[in-house]
Deep mutational scan, measured.
Amino acid sequence: MISNAKIARINELAAKAKAGVITEEEKAEQQKLRQEYLK
């Protein structure tokens, strides 16, 4: 099960992506976390 901290990070990265200020490194982290969440 995914931790609350990881869910919070997913939401934080989603907000950054929506604002258009996300880095390529953060995009990769976001994809990794989303895949983990979906498992």
Rank of each mutant, 00 (worst) to 15 (best):
V21G: 05
K32H: 07
A15I: 05
E26R: 00
E25C: 06
T23M: 03
K16P: 01
K6W: 10
E25P: 06
I7D: 02
R9V: 02
G20Q: 04
E26F: 01
Y37I: 13
G20Y: 03
E24L: 12
K32V: 14
A17D: 15
K16L: 09
Y37R: 03
K16R: 06
V21H: 08
A19G: 05
K32E: 14
E25F: 06
R34Q: 14
Q31G: 06
A15F: 07
E36G: 04
N11L: 15
Q31I: 08
S3Y: 07
L38D: 14
L33S: 02
E25K: 11
K18I: 09
I2A: 09
E29A: 01
Q30Y: 14
A14P: 01
I2G: 04
R9P: 00
Q30T: 04
K16G: 01
K39M: 15
L33T: 01
K27H: 06
N4M: 15
N4K: 14
L13W: 00
K18N: 07
L38V: 13
Q30L: 15
R9I: 03
K6N: 10
I7R: 11
N11Y: 11
A14G: 04
E12S: 04
L13N: 00
K6Y: 09
K39I: 14
K39E: 15
I7T: 04
Y37S: 06
K6H: 10
N11W: 14
E24W: 08
N11F: 14
A19S: 08
E24K: 12
E24I: 10
A17K: 06
E36K: 05
E12R: 04
K18H: 08
L33A: 03
E25D: 09
I22Q: 04
L33W: 03
A19Y: 07
I2H: 08
E29T: 02
V21W: 09
A17F: 07
R9N: 01
I7M: 07
A8C: 12
Y37H: 04
E29L: 03
G20E: 03
K6E: 07
T23A: 03
Q35P: 02
N4Q: 14
M1L: 11
E24D: 10
R9D: 01
A28K: 14
E26S: 00
T23Y: 00
Q31T: 11
K18D: 13
Q31N: 09
I22M: 07
K32G: 05
A5D: 13
A28E: 09
A17Q: 10
L38E: 15
S3R: 04
R9K: 09
A19V: 06
K6S: 09
K18L: 10
I2N: 08
K6G: 05
K39W: 14
A8E: 09
E25V: 07
Q35H: 11
I10K: 02
N11D: 07
Q35E: 15
K18R: 11
E29I: 02
K27E: 05
M1F: 12
A8H: 11
K39F: 14
K6M: 15
L13E: 00
K27W: 08
E36A: 04
I10D: 02
A14T: 06
Y37G: 07
R34I: 15
R34P: 00
A14Q: 11
L38A: 11
V21I: 14
L38W: 09
A14F: 11
E12W: 05
E12C: 04
L33R: 01
E26Y: 01
E12D: 05
K16Y: 04
A15R: 09
A5V: 12
I10V: 05
L38P: 06
R34A: 12
M1E: 08
E36S: 04
N11Q: 12
Y37M: 09
K18M: 09
T23Q: 01
N11H: 14
K18T: 06
N4S: 14
L38C: 15
Q30G: 05
L13K: 00
E12A: 08
A28R: 14
A8D: 13
N4R: 11
L33C: 03
A8F: 07
V21K: 13
L33M: 03
A5G: 09
N11P: 01
K39D: 15
E24R: 07
Y37V: 10
L38K: 08
M1W: 11
K27N: 05
L13Q: 00
Q31V: 08
K27S: 04
E29K: 00
A19N: 13
M1N: 08
S3Q: 11
E12T: 04
E26C: 02
I7F: 08
Y37W: 11
E36I: 05
E26P: 01
A15S: 06
G20L: 03
L33V: 02
A5W: 11
K16D: 00
N11R: 13
A14K: 11
A15D: 07
Q31S: 09
R34D: 07
E24A: 11
K39N: 15
T23D: 03
E24M: 07
M1G: 13
I10R: 03
Q30M: 12
L38N: 13
A14N: 13
I22L: 05
I10W: 15
A8L: 11
R34L: 15
I22P: 01
I2E: 09
A8R: 13
G20D: 02
E36V: 04
A28N: 09
A15V: 07
I22F: 00
Q35M: 10
I7K: 13
Y37L: 04
E12H: 06
A8I: 10
A14I: 08
K39Y: 15
E12V: 06
E26K: 01
Q31Y: 11
E36M: 05
R34K: 12
I10Q: 03
K18E: 10
A17V: 05
A28G: 07
V21P: 03
L33H: 04
A19T: 08
A8S: 07
G20R: 03
E36R: 03
I10H: 04
A15P: 00
L13V: 00
A17T: 06
I2M: 14
K18F: 08
Q31L: 12
E25N: 07
M1P: 14
T23W: 01
E29H: 01
I7C: 11
N11G: 04
A19W: 08
I7Y: 07
E25H: 06
K18A: 10
M1Y: 15
K39L: 15
I22E: 01
E25I: 08
A19H: 09
A15L: 11
A14S: 10
Q35C: 14
K18V: 04
L38T: 08
E25S: 09
I2T: 08
E26N: 00
N4I: 13
K27D: 04
T23L: 03
K16F: 02
E26H: 01
A15Q: 13
E24Q: 08
R34H: 15
E36H: 04
A5S: 10
N4P: 14
L13I: 02
L13A: 00
A8T: 10
M1T: 14
L13G: 00
E24T: 06
K6A: 11
E29R: 01
N4V: 09
G20T: 01
S3C: 10
V21S: 09
E26D: 02
A5H: 09
G20W: 01
A14D: 13
I22Y: 01
Q35S: 11
A28C: 09
T23N: 05
E24H: 09
E36D: 10
A28H: 11
K16W: 02
A17E: 10
I10L: 15
E36Q: 06
A14L: 06
E36W: 12
A5E: 13
L33P: 00
K16M: 04
R9C: 00
N4F: 13
L13P: 02
G20K: 04
A28D: 12
A17H: 06
I10P: 01
G20C: 06
T23V: 01
K32I: 13
M1V: 11
G20N: 04
I7A: 06
R9S: 01
K39Q: 15
T23P: 00
K16S: 02
A14W: 14
K16N: 03
V21N: 13
I7W: 13
K39V: 13
Q31H: 13
N11K: 13
R9A: 03
A17S: 14
K32Y: 11
A15T: 09
I2D: 08
I22W: 02
A17I: 08
I2V: 07
K39A: 15
K6L: 15
I22N: 01
K39H: 15
I7H: 05
K18G: 05
I7E: 05
V21D: 08
N11S: 08
K16T: 01
A28T: 10
